[in-house]
Amino acid sequence: MGVVTVVGLGSMGKAALYYLLKHTNHEVWGYDKSSEVVNNALSLGANAVRADVMDDSVTKKIASNSDVVLTAVPQSIADSLVIKLHDYGVNVVDLIFLWKFSDEVAGRVKNGPLVIPACGWAPGLTNLLAVAASSELDIVEEVGIHVGGNPVNPRPPLYYDLLFSVESTIEEYVRPATIMFNGELKNVDPLSFIYPFKTWLIEGDFSEFYTDGLSTLIVTMPKWFRTIKTMYERTIRWSRHLEVMRVLKDLGLLNNTDVLVKSLGNVLKPGVEDFSLTIVEAKGMINGEPAKIAFEGIDYAREGFTSMARLTGFTAAIVADLVAKKAIVGSGLVPIEEAYVRNRDVLRQVLNGLKAENVKFMLTKTVTAP
């Protein structure tokens, strides 16, 4: 048993806290500056403290009293907090650190305590599934990640509900997405290409667009799979929603982020009943024949948690548990896909942990004979 501290007790952090309390024997602590969310954490049975985690004295105390810190703070402070905790000597699992990969930021944590970056649902779980699927192939040519959290009942005018922060939601539509095409990395405008999307998992009129979720995969995948030529993440939305967002883009209304945050913040309502789609595919060759490996799953809101919070918070909590139990070890920056390469049992443990909360994935292998 160790001490696992969750910093940031919003929807994702609360889900992580819930999982750790329910499924592990660790001593679990939570920190946030909001009295409301701290009280919610106390009601779950956690040791929860109201404090500003960006205060150096608080950060140092958290680091010295913890075996692992799971950080679920806003994107605006995630990088600086993770680096501070790392410098104070504690292992860290974070939801969005290095979501946009940076050599400079990665270099700040290349040695010392373990840091597992961008370890939520997407990126995070999707990274793990991408490398696991690719490892089933003899030759890897393409990896495609198709993910999306959406309201069960989409309502006008935006046909979307707020499932995480307004700022991060808008980022999906305005930040250039890094993808690999013909073996080279390139940046594309997210809404430049909108593709129809269908899946056997659910009926509905869906579309998808490029988003910037490859994170550390842009450096890890080419290192292990030198034949890879194509790699991307696309986010799935109800088609009506992307039609509206495309109009906003064409009118130039996506250019002023500050105004957009205020405007959409007044329109978007917090999501309650949502579902999340995850389809991760690797294509290439097995025994000289074309082949495809796919992980597919759908999850719905349950027990007061949105599906997005479940997938994000539970995945991070499972990984934090594995670090605390020393099932994942290492020094410095260790993306979750690298933890898998070092120990393939990580996949089984993560998927079994998710299954304990009724989150299930199906693995299919298709080999096409001539």
Rank of each mutant, 00 (worst) to 15 (best):
V7K: 08
G10S: 08
A16W: 08
Y18S: 15
L21R: 13
L21W: 05
V28S: 12
K33G: 07
S35C: 02
N39K: 11
N40M: 09
L42A: 03
S43W: 01
L44V: 06
V49E: 00
R50L: 02
D52G: 03
D52H: 02
M54W: 08
D56S: 08
D56Y: 02
V58N: 01
K61W: 08
N65H: 08
S66M: 05
V68I: 10
V68Y: 06
L70Q: 01
V73T: 08
V73W: 02
I83V: 11
W99Y: 08
K100G: 04
S102F: 03
D103T: 09
E104K: 11
V109C: 05
G112R: 02
L114G: 03
V115Y: 05
P117G: 02
W121Q: 04
N127S: 15
L128G: 00
A130F: 00
A130H: 02
S135N: 14
E136N: 11
L137I: 04
V140H: 08
E142S: 12
G144R: 07
I145Y: 10
N153Y: 13
P156E: 14
D161S: 13
F164W: 15
E172F: 14
Y173D: 06
I179H: 10
I179D: 10
F181N: 15
N187H: 13
N187S: 15
L191A: 12
F193T: 15
I194G: 11
P196V: 13
L201R: 14
E203T: 14
D205W: 10
F206D: 09
F206A: 03
E208F: 10
D212T: 00
T216R: 07
T220E: 05
F225P: 04
K229V: 02
Y232V: 00
T235W: 07
R240N: 12
R240G: 01
H241P: 04
E243A: 09
V244H: 03
R246C: 00
R246V: 01
R246F: 02
L248N: 01
T257Q: 07
D258M: 02
V259D: 00
V261N: 01
V261F: 00
P270W: 00
P270T: 02
D274M: 05
I279D: 12
A282G: 03
P290T: 07
I293Q: 00
F295N: 01
G297T: 07
G297I: 03
M308L: 15
A309E: 09
T315M: 14
D321C: 09
K325H: 12
L333C: 05
I336K: 09
E337D: 14
Y340L: 11
R342N: 15
N343F: 06
R344L: 04
L347Y: 03
L347K: 06
N352R: 12
K360S: 14
K360E: 15
F361M: 06
L363K: 13
T364N: 11
T368C: 04
A369G: 07
